[in-house]
Simulated assay, not measured.
Amino acid sequence: MRIATAIGTVLGVGYLRPAPGTWGSLAALPLAYGLHQWGGFPLLAAATVACTLAGLWAAAEMTRGQEDLDPSEFVMDEVAGQFLALWAISYPAWAHDISITALWPGWITAFVLFRVFDILKPGPVGWADRKKGPFGVMMDDVIAGILAAIGVALLAGFSHGVLGI
């Protein structure tokens, strides 16, 4: 297995069917948990940047000379995007010394919102998705992850501030 394919498919996760993007997002959850447990938010943030850069390279390599510039088995974009969505719970857990598992509703919300934004591709997500090449492959999921993180933060603020939960 070429290194670019190993990275792009996240060691073969992208070959799982149906819905390889969902499998890629699910694979990101235990990875994010481990990164947060080992090094807190700073390590998760660094891993997100590393995944994004590695994904840009792997997407270029995997699609070089191919007709399909966004193959369904490429799921490193989902990992990077899901990591970003989880920043909304990793940072407060790290900054306030809260167990990240205590924020379990945020995990579910981050996963669901990320998948919704990734599938429906509203606004800037769709704009990035229409770009050709590695940028488009990676950036639609990065933007979906940012939107999901904002959604998680807003819903947490509403839940804790307005509802008092």
Rank of each mutant, 00 (worst) to 15 (best):
D68T: 04
R130L: 02
F135T: 12
K132T: 15
A85D: 00
A110N: 11
F83D: 09
F83N: 10
M138K: 03
A144F: 03
D77C: 03
R115W: 12
P124Q: 11
K121R: 00
W127F: 09
W57N: 01
I100M: 07
A93Q: 03
H96K: 06
I89P: 09
V112Y: 06
I119D: 09
P71K: 12
P71M: 06
V116S: 06
P105H: 05
I98G: 03
I143L: 05
I89T: 04
A60N: 08
L120M: 04
A88V: 00
V162Q: 04
A58S: 10
L154S: 07
G123R: 11
F135Q: 10
F74K: 12
S72T: 09
V152N: 12
F158P: 03
E67K: 15
L56F: 14
M138S: 08
G157P: 00
D97E: 15
L154K: 04
G81L: 01
E61G: 10
T101E: 12
F83K: 08
L103K: 01
Q66K: 14
G145M: 04
M138Q: 06
T101I: 15
I89F: 11
R115Q: 14
H96S: 11
Q66N: 09
A59L: 00
G133R: 00
G151V: 09
A59Q: 08
G151N: 00
W57P: 07
Q82C: 06
K121D: 10
D70T: 01
P134Q: 15
A80I: 00
A80P: 00
P122D: 01
V75E: 11
D68K: 15
A58Q: 00
T101V: 14
V112W: 01
I98L: 12
D70C: 09
I119T: 08
W107K: 09
S90E: 03
V142A: 10
D141E: 09
I100R: 08
M76C: 07
V116D: 10
G106P: 02
G65V: 03
V162H: 13
I89K: 11
A95E: 13
A144G: 04
M138D: 00
V125P: 05
A144E: 01
E61W: 09
F135W: 15
D77S: 01
I108Y: 06
G126H: 03
L86H: 05
I143G: 06
D70K: 15
M138F: 01
D70W: 11
R64S: 07
D70G: 10
T101G: 11
W127V: 05
L155H: 03
A102K: 02
G133Y: 05
R130Q: 14
S72A: 13
E61T: 07
E73P: 11
L113T: 07
A149L: 02
P124C: 10
E73I: 13
Q66M: 13
S99W: 04
K121L: 07
A59E: 00
D68S: 07
K132N: 15
I119L: 01
D140P: 00
M62L: 13
G136A: 07
W94S: 14
G123V: 05
A149E: 01
